[in-house]
């Protein structure tokens, strides 16, 4: 099991998504971290093109590739799942930080 991702990282992810998708009408605190980002229900209304934009933004910012759609669907479920994925990948890349 991974550690619970820190709040700073979640905030960073929200800002990354908002900046990447040029979202200006939603405040970071309005985005629920546990609610799905796709299919409605959250403050953001995202589609599959947005998903690809987020995948590439994660790669640019964290040097972490999401290599396939199964992994992408699973990872991009919510802010929490993205944060957990980044934390896990960071630990895999730098096991000395565990």
């Amino acid at each position: 099991m991974t550690d619970i991702p820190n709040n700073e990282l979640k905030k960073e992810i929200k800002m990354l998504i908002m900046n990447t998708l040029n979202i200006t009408d939603v405040k970071p605190e309005d985005i629920d971290e546990g609610i799905p980002l796709f299919g409605g229900g959250n403050a953001l209304t995202l589609d599959s093109v947005d998903a690809l934009e987020i995948i590439m933004a994660i790669q640019r910012n964290y040097q972490i590739r999401i290599t396939d759609q199964s992994q992408a669907r699973y990872t991009l479920r919510s802010i929490n799942s993205i944060a957990e994925f980044i934390e896990t990948e960071r630990k895999n890349q730098h096991p000395e930080n565990i």
Binding site: S48, V49, L52, R65, T67, D68, Q69, S70
Partner: peptide, 18 residues
Amino acid sequence: INVLLEDQGTGGAGFRFM
């Protein structure tokens, strides 16, 4: 194009990563 490359199966990039 995006659907065929990224959504269905694993697409152009995904297969190349594999």
